[in-house]
Amino acid sequence: MGIYKHLDSHAKEIVKAWNARFAGSYPSEGGRFIMKEKDPFNNPIGAMAQKAFTEVFAILSQKSEPDPEALRAKIDPIIRLRAVQTFIPSEGVAFIFPLKDVVRDALKKEVKEGMVSQKDLDAFYNRVDQLSLWAFDVYMACREQIYRLRASDVRTRTLNVLKNKGILCEVPEVGTEILPHDVYKNGGFEKSDEDPDRGL
């Protein structure tokens, strides 16, 4: 398993190439801007991608098995971004896979010279596949959050005023239950020998 030290020594060019493939998923003017503009506040997409790819690759290129939680946390910002852009879901997470391509290109010499075997590469590719699944988890969580935000936008706007106007209120403690708790259990309307007061 000699791949990891080589991955580490090529980290910078791999992250750069991965970043370029990511930027390539945007229309050309957008992609150029994302790659070129260095100010993180003028170009949050570029800054987020650079940070996420550097940190994710640092975890993936370690010899030890990557920790799913750590990877989810590192990939979160960039997936969060893709979840609000106009991509369809498959496009949203597709930028994960070119990492394989990029790594194969970067390690071409090492593979040719037998320092890295196909088996080694496959093992790394498996990690990328796994990453794509975790990215999908994050993507779905973001989408669900967006749906919640959409719904709560309407609810919070109206709830307080409905309460203030007394249209909605919390039911106060009234001391006695209007309906017995198990009213639905036996149809609620059947006679019961144990409780003669219940039912019709």
């Binding site: 945007y26 229309p27 957008g30 992609g31 994302i34 997409i45 609000v84 852009q85």
Partner: peptide, 8 residues
């Protein structure tokens, strides 16, 4: 909107 979308 451009910065957040990359849409020219």
């Amino acid at each position: 909107f451009f910065i957040g979308s990359g849409d020219p």
